[in-house]
């Protein structure tokens, strides 16, 4: 989670926007983007987000790294051209690639890319704390907000615990090897089991410490910032871009 909050400290017009407005507009934009059907509309959407990322002065390398993180999940997309029925474009022995499959795969890849860019734009210009508060104040259930918050807060604590346990295993001569060997499989299972137990015990201790400070409901205060002209202009602009995208994509704004 080292990449979190890496570039959120900059001072650009995008960074300065009220997180609540940024959250809602970007989510709306995201919903539209993943429903676009024409590559042209998707290209336009991508260009718009790139403009936002550029305005926010987010380094290209960082953006590319975030995109690469999603690469393992795209594998399935490469099957689509082979499995979608339609007019054959290429033949590899018994397998054939269809035009319909190719364009479907293209649209899906573009949607994924654009969606990732939107979330990158949101999370790299808004500190996580502000984002969580914004989520709470626009009505995301508290339980969910707290879930995200505790995951981020305790990710490093738990991964440090797991690293310590692995070191302890190795210092007693265990070399992690094939999971196919029964003794290695057992060591691995023990590690995972212990990690779970420790996480649960940690949870209990955290809850106890919260009770010690008279915990009741309501963890997050709404942000004190007030929306100004910038926020309204941004919202209007987003609305305009969304209409334009739908116009290009569907031939009508709705």
């Amino acid at each position: 989670m080292q990449f979190l909050d890496l570039h959120t400290g900059r001072d650009t017009p995008v960074h300065r926007l009220d997180p609540r407005f940024k959250l809602v507009t970007m989510l709306a934009f995201l919903v539209v983007v993943v429903n676009l059907r024409q590559p042209g509309a998707l290209a336009l959407a991508t260009a718009v987000i790139c403009l936002v990322l550029f305005t926010a002065r987010i380094p290209v390398r960082y953006v590319l790294a975030r995109l690469l993180m999603a690469l393992p999940f795209t594998g399935i997309l490469f099957l689509i051209p082979f499995t979608t029925p339609g007019h054959a474009a290429l033949k590899f022995g018994p397998a054939s690639v269809s035009y319909e499959g190719l364009s479907l795969a293209l649209v899906l890849v573009m949607r994924l890319g654009a969606a990732l860019l939107v979330t990158t734009a949101l999370t790299s210009t808004t500190p996580l704390t502000d984002l969580l508060r914004a989520m709470a104040s626009v009505g995301v259930p508290t339980v969910f907000v707290q879930l995200v918050h505790f995951t981020v807060r305790y990710f490093s604590v738990l991964s440090e615990e797991i690293a310590t346990m692995r070191r302890a295993q190795r210092s007693r001569g265990y070399e992690p090897g094939s999971v196919l060997r029964p003794d290695h499989l057992r060591a691995m299972a023990q590690l995972i089991g212990m990690a779970f137990i420790r996480a649960m015990e940690r949870g209990e201790r955290v809850y106890r410490a919260m009770r010690a400070r008279n915990y009741r409901e309501g963890l997050f205060r709404p942000p004190s910032r007030r929306a100004g002209a910038g926020e309204y202009a941004w919202t209007a602009l987003t609305g305009l871009v969304i209409c334009l995208l739908l116009l290009v994509d569907r031939g009508s704004p709705l």
């Binding site: 996580l128 918050h149 505790f150 940690r202 201790r205 106890r208 410490a209």
Partner: peptide, 10 residues
């Protein structure tokens, strides 16, 4: 353990 006690985001 302060990690048990200090749980907030800031």
């Amino acid at each position: 353990d302060p990690d048990d006690q200090v749980f907030s985001a800031t």
